[in-house]
Design a protein around this nucleic acid. Structure first.
Length: 201
DNA sequence: CAAACGATTTTCT
DNA sequence: GAAAATCGTTTGG
């Protein structure tokens, strides 16, 4: 089943980040359907989180999507090259979200290979936030799009993960966030080869 | 209006 | 393991 808006509008973004592991992202871009199981996530919790774009209540043209009601996509261009895909959570006015860091390819692998200009399926195809976005055809045009719509949505396919298969760690690439960089806001599936390298856990 | 920087990936040594 | 690639957003003048 497709996750309902009520899944995203809850207030505990860290819990949502954990629950998103094992769920399946499906994109339908230009008539091409691709999907992948989420194997790594990171939580970005509201205005008090220095690592978040919305820290201190910063509400700009780019980040305004984070302030929307939960259940929409937030796609941000980083380093001028990479599209990073986030799931916005919580209710309108409270900017929190979950960065999808890695997925395991399911359907449409051949299209992902084309988009990534690769010939063979390697873990690098979707291991990493910029990589999975490119593979699934996600770009900034999807910012603000509902995750319960037809272009992109997240499904629960009944995959259940034992608690022991969830690895908790610190976030990646947010060293500038000082003490908030140490928060246990990163979740991944133990032993899954599509989990990004990032930094060691 | 101009300058600096980043929630990264790839490639080369 | 280290450095380059590359551009929209943000910040300062």
């Amino acid at each position: 089943m497709i996750l309902p808006p009520s899944f995203y509008t809850r207030t505990d973004v860290v819990k949502i980040a954990k629950e998103l592991l094992g769920k399946v992202i499906v994109t339908n871009i230009g008539g091409i359907v691709t999907s992948g199981m989420i194997v790594e996530t990171e939580a970005y919790a509201g205005v008090h989180d220095k690592a978040s774009h919305s820290y201190g209540g910063r509400n700009t043209e780019r980040t305004k999507v984070m302030f929307m009601n939960g259940g929409v996509a937030y796609v941000y261009l980083c380093y001028g090259i990479h599209h990073l895909f986030n799931v916005i959570t919580n209710v309108e006015g409270t900017p929190s979200g979950v960065l999808i860091r890695a997925v395991e390819p399911l359907e449409g692998v051949e299209y992902m290979l084309v988009r990534r200009k690769k010939e063979k399926l390697t873990p690098a195809l979707t291991a990493g936030p910029g990589a999975l976005s490119a593979a699934l055809g996600i770009n900034t045009a999807l910012t603000g799009t509902s995750l319960s719509g037809t272009d992109i949505f997240i499904e629960d396919r009944g995959i259940k993960l034992p608690k022991t298969d969830i690895v908790i760690g610190t976030r990646v690439g947010v060293a500038y966030a000082a003490e908030d960089a140490m928060l246990p806001y990163r979740f991944s599936i133990k032993g899954n080869k599509y989990v990004s390298k990032g930094k060691g856990l």
